[in-house]
Amino acid sequence: MTTGKTFIILCLALVLISCEEAINWRLQPQDEPLLVVEAVLTNEFKRHTVKLTRPYLQQDGTAEPLSGAVVRLYTGSSTETLTEEPPGSGLYLTDSLRIVSNRLYTLVIDYGGQTYFATDVQEPVEPLPPFNYRPANDSTYVLVPEASGDKANYIEHRIDWQATGFCTGSLPCQAEVTVYDLKNIDVQAQFPPDQEVVAFPAGSIIIRKKYSVSEAYRAYLRGMLSETAWRGGFFDTYPANPATNLSTGATGFFALSTVITDTVVVKPLN
């Protein structure tokens, strides 16, 4: 159900008389004693990372790593204790392992005399859709986000055009674009704000990685996008914190995904 063009037209009426500008806004920061967990563990055989930080108080701030926590991963049959590497980084790594389906994983974090925990299950991933892009202008292209499969997912695109002739000067020649397809029906998502245009030339190499999403992770991502990619249009919803699967006092998400990946080279379109 899309109504993109109508929205554009209708909002043009708004846009014609509306104006957006940057301002200095004094936030009312609060030292949140929150523990932030960023962990997406996959079926890839590797050392997976659980990142622990504290929230920061201003936009574009730097997250303070949370060091010294004891982080364990319960797999149902075994327990893995993660190690902080490098020390003081707030990055806690597993041994090399692969997350498997149909098993409940529990993350347990002990820090400051408190214990935080979260669980998730891994869903299978559906095949990657055909790569779709369109011209942005005479020489560059943009992604065409499309729904794929029947289940919620997201596709990470790592785009690299360093090897092309368009990579000159000081501008970066790499980009990372994630396209979420949460199979949701939200006014806010139907009518999102303008998005940054990431254009890439023919010859760019794009590594796509598609992530499966559990129901809890989907709810979290929907909340996260409501507060980020979808916020700033004309039909925003009440701001709120995304629904975490972490126990009280922590935020972020402990997610398990199945991933599938491919690499495409952008060809010129006629």
């Binding site: 920061p29 949140e32 932030v36 920061y56 701030g61 990372e176 996260m224 990619a229 701001p239 995304p242």
Partner: peptide
């Protein structure tokens, strides 16, 4: 009244706001 963030954190490369109370601003 509206809700403004009281802090931020990162997830999947995105800056996610933290809200402490509905309509705090």
């Amino acid at each position: 009244p509206f809700s403004s963030p009281t802090a931020f954190y990162h997830f999947n490369g995105t800056e996610v706001p933290v809200y402490s109370q509905r309509n705090n601003d």
